[in-house]
Write a protein that binds this DNA or RNA. Structure first.
Lengths: 143, 143
DNA sequence: TGTATCATTGTATCTTTGTATCATTGTATC
DNA sequence: GATACAATGATACAAAGATACAATGATACA
């Protein structure tokens, strides 16, 4: 019976505004990947920006740096970032208007899935979630 | 192929103070599950503690590791532990029955606000978000 | 200027840990 | 006995971690 105190539920990074939840069913790689994709989609990360090194972000999030490296490689496959051995990782410019749209769609998709996944874990009904979302939409002041 | 099992009447684990009795009518999964639940209830296992790996405990108890994994997953459904692929299994902090509902509402509220905030930052309409959510709800397999 | 050396950064690969799926076994029911 | 079902086991798979390696760039010094 180990008294291992390595288990923090949530870890926030300081090098990037993202966080991981170790209790969630979603794999860490996916969590990291989805949040970085969202940052790019929202313009919080701009073309040319350098991402933290895999070791830096991994230390922040208290995960293995290979986990971050895997997330980066997947984002590279999506043509969102460029990962260069020995140099670092950089945000790419979207190649077309269509790819920007695709990025937005994919981001919304993953955000929606995240909410559904969490809601289901709480045993909430579709109706409850929809209602909460409508309410939230009105409560948040429109821009 | 005949399997000699007479030697396993009772097996005690060294990695956890629990044991299984192969002659008992109660399924092994239940025996393991009940005893771990009791250890948590009595505080012998505390929030943050790491449980033995499924293979470790299985070897101790002379049981297939899937049997332990099943017990772990059931305990996870009871919200007593968190089982993470590739990482291990950890005891969760208890949530009182009384605060469960409030916590659920709070979580839903913050999840909904988060989605709204992100969606607005992406310049999406309420209708688009609602539609995406409905789709996501159907894509995730219903329990 | 060239290059040796070292620190930094990502990569490859193997291990550890849980998951998914199908096969086997034992038991209840007919 | 035959059959159906639940429990357990066997095996292949996938996520995350550990460790050794390779590419790049900075620095020192001949």
């Amino acid at each position: 019976m180990k008294r291992q105190q390595a288990h923090r539920a949530i870890a926030k990074a300081s090098s990037l505004p993202i966080e991981v939840d170790f209790r969630e069913a979603v794999p860490l790689t996916e969590q990291i990947r989805n949040q970085i994709r969202a940052l790019i989609a929202r313009g919080k990360l701009q073309p040319g920006d350098q991402l933290p090194t895999v070791r830096q972000l991994a230390a922040d999030l208290r995960v293995n740096f290979n986990t971050v490296a895997r997330a980066y490689r997947m984002l590279e496959k999506e043509a969102l970032i460029s990962v260069r051995h020995g140099r670092g990782t950089f945000v790419l410019a979207p190649v077309s208007e269509a790819s920007k749209e695709a990025l937005k769609r994919e981001t919304l998709h993953s955000l929606a899935h995240h909410l559904v996944q969490q809601a289901r874990a709480l045993g909430l009904s579709e109706h409850e979630v929809m209602a909460a979302l409508r309410r939230a939409w009105q409560e948040d002041e429109p821009p």
